[in-house]
Design a protein around this nucleic acid. Sequence first.
DNA 1: ACTTGCAGTTCCATTCAATGGAACTTAGTT
DNA 2: AACTAAGTTCCATTGAATGGAACTGCAAGT
Lengths: 271, 271
Amino acid sequence: MSLSEDLKSEENESSSELDLTSPISRAFHVLDVVAGFGGPARFADVQKASPLPKATLSRMLRQLEGEGMLIFDEGSQRYRLGLRLIRLAHAAWESASLVEVARPVIDALAERFGMTVHLACLDAFQVLYLDKRVPRPIIRMFSSPGRIGPAYCTGVGKAMLAFLPDRDREEAIARQSFTRHTPHTLTTPEALRAVLATIRERGFAFDDEEHENTIICVAVPILAPGGAVLGALSVTTTTHVSSLDALAAMAPVLKGAAADIATAARMQMLG
Amino acid sequence: MSLSEDLKSEENESSSELDLTSPISRAFHVLDVVAGFGGPARFADVQKASPLPKATLSRMLRQLEGEGMLIFDEGSQRYRLGLRLIRLAHAAWESASLVEVARPVIDALAERFGMTVHLACLDAFQVLYLDKRVPRPIIRMFSSPGRIGPAYCTGVGKAMLAFLPDRDREEAIARQSFTRHTPHTLTTPEALRAVLATIRERGFAFDDEEHENTIICVAVPILAPGGAVLGALSVTTTTHVSSLDALAAMAPVLKGAAADIATAARMQMLG
DNA sequence: ACTTGCAGTTCCATTCAATGGAACTTAGTT
DNA sequence: AACTAAGTTCCATTGAATGGAACTGCAAGT
């Protein structure tokens, strides 16, 4: 814990009067404020931390929400950073010049010494950590987060589609590309609709080599108490080491895990 | 490889005529284009992928660079996503509601089944992966990347400061907060300057419990052939399991690793 | 050496998006 | 019911952003 959690940003913002003339500066400033707040921020929180007038902030926040850079949670009346930012994030991190080339070196060091390895660079006279390797497997990571994938031919995608409200589900189906990736890929809306019905009954989804040969997975949706689709969870393996039957046997555990996450998410909303 | 690398975004952009009226929409659009390009993009690359007129793009790109959202590499005359985005990224990911609460559940599942576990949500009718756990330790991660830390009391920070050009170094020193974190923290510019001189001679830096008690590390700068500071690399441990002497013994290996990274980075620039 | 073409920047008059003070709505409080 | 706080909408004003065109710099072709 201490080894990995000791990196909180502590030093003050370089503060010196930001410009905030152009709308673009203002937009990023607002994002910084929301990000800096740590958790979901109310309008007033943002206002307190920003010199911008109320009217301007109000419009800016809603515009940023429209852009997908912020998410406004109706329930808690709070803004948090949006998914579009995570996508950009991923791309930024991937293209951070050192990250890519340093990866194998960092792996080797971590293994050789059995200790935590950091890669950093300087940004505005502070240390910006770019990568980290710890010897034990613990850990969240960022190789997938930020990536996007097709919904119609992945386990998590189908698990979520299946439990969408009818209206949304049809719109989502209409937006799928139905590109064939493997012989098993579902390539028509009808086929997908049928599979989704099965998933809805069964409560979990498979990916039976639909996206990539030999890759199979079982996935469950994470559903809010009201039934809203929060996300999905999957366990992936290959046909070489396991089978759909074996994966199906895991489904109950996965469902329990999804329920746990939904509960925890609910707690977080209230807390 | 196939299990972790199968997530390239393949489906086309939802394409449908973006608005691009407000400057803010345009700004994010440009970021998306640069991000979508994969690697560093030249002006012409961006122009080809965007309906915006040359003049507008030119200004926009430079403004985004000024904001720190893009980095313009003089050498290759290319734009890539900036470090500010990585900072925001980190905050966005941390605050993605599911990530936090799902973490322990994902850990447990990965361990229990010994298989890859994914957490995803739906974004614009596609799957957006939020987290992933693989049973084996491999892996890049994103718990530190994006975090910022003080330069004057971390190994990587001091390693980089030490090798900055005099002018930059003095400015950087002037910008440090010199907040005391532990009894060992350097709290004056003079003390730091002295230590940096030692580091410059010796070629590597220690963090001798200066940021957090019992945490020690050894760090080396990553220097470009011309001497420019590209970044830094560190190995961290605790006083309970190791010592500065033991860390010092690793310095030559670290230096070699840093040199490898610098070389690889150089290759990448040319290629 | 001269020319042509391409890549990118600067100019500047025009315009429309952004602005912000104030009025207004909504929700919560005494 | 009156009051306070939180947030949104209004609208006349303004200046930031715009983009066509002219300009610069560079590299390849003749």
